[in-house]
């Protein structure tokens, strides 16, 4: 291979396929896909050793699809395709790749628009504070405390003690817990789960809170570990979490 191309530089298997087809100056069709299968596999094989499986996973799935496709294109089968119903026809993959390419090109145009837009600076406007719009006007009145007491005595009997109500504790949602936990982790770098939910947290709080931890871990926003089995769950903010989105 003349030069090295790293999988991380591609936004997924379709991106790599588009690149390979563009480079070979081919139109997107089943035959051109079959032609680039070997190159595709070479990239994935080269990357599979070093990169983390998470990143390569999608590429591996595509590799399997491509091998099936290549076999179909090279060895036309006597039976009609799609006999088993579930299998993907080469045309579907080609359609899919075309569709992807449409959006990949559209993305470039949107980026162009954003770039151009950055050259327009809007008229500043005046902040509400400067203009004093809707600023509360504080009335300044002298009130005689005695008059206030008389007034209260008049209206007080009108107020009945409210009937007792049963308060149902508000059950937080996972979304709310994610926001809350994210806020907490902005203040402190690490946090124990117990400490976060409080010693006496009810199940209705524990479950969404725990799901929130899992979700943030999944989004790579936090690291989670235990020092011993059944030990305290420790949550730590991932400093690199915000900008590493590779796909």
């Amino acid at each position: 291979m003349g030069y090295e191309i790293r999988l991380e530089n591609f936004n997924g298997p379709f991106d790599l396929l588009c690149h390979l087809i563009d480079e070979a100056k081919l139109d997107i069709c089943a035959v051109s896909l079959a032609q680039v299968v070997d190159q595709y596999l070479a990239y994935v094989e080269a990357a599979a050793g070093q990169a983390d499986l998470d990143a390569v996973g999608d590429f591996l799935v595509m590799a399997a699809r491509l091998l099936v496709l290549k076999a179909r294109v090279l060895l036309p089968s006597p039976q009609p395709a799609n006999e088993e119903g579930e299998e993907e026809s080469p045309e579907q993959l080609v359609d899919h790749l075309r569709e992807y390419k449409i959006f990949r090109d559209a993305a470039a145009r949107l980026a162009g628009l954003m770039e151009k837009e950055a050259d327009y600076f809007p008229a500043p406007g005046l902040s509400l504070a400067e203009v004093g719009v809707k600023k509360a006007v504080r009335p300044y009145v002298t009130i005689d405390p005695a008059a206030l007491a008389t007034a209260w005595a008049k209206v007080a009997p009108l107020f009945q003690p409210p009937p007792p109500v049963t308060i149902i504790p508000d059950t937080p949602t996972v979304q709310e817990e994610i926001k809350r936990l994210t806020r907490r982790l902005r203040q402190v770098p690490t946090l124990e789960f117990r400490q976060y939910v409080g010693r006496r947290a009810r199940t209705t709080r524990l479950v969404p809170a725990f799901l929130a931890v899992l979700e943030l871990w999944h989004r790579r926003k936090v690291l989670v570990w235990q020092t011993v089995r059944f030990g305290e769950i420790i949550i730590a903010r991932r400093e690199d979490g915000t900008c590493t989105a590779s796909h």
Binding site: G12, Y100, F103, R104, A107, L110, A111, H247
Partner: peptide, 29 residues
């Protein structure tokens, strides 16, 4: 915005309203 973010944004812009799964189906990741 990263290329990945731009592609995703493009899909949402042209196909909205759209679910995460539908976007993933187009992008393959």
């Amino acid at each position: 915005l990263s290329q990945a973010a731009l592609e995703t944004l493009a899909i949402i812009a042209y196909r909205q309203p759209i679910t995460r799964q539908e976007i993933e189906a187009v992008r393959g990741v």
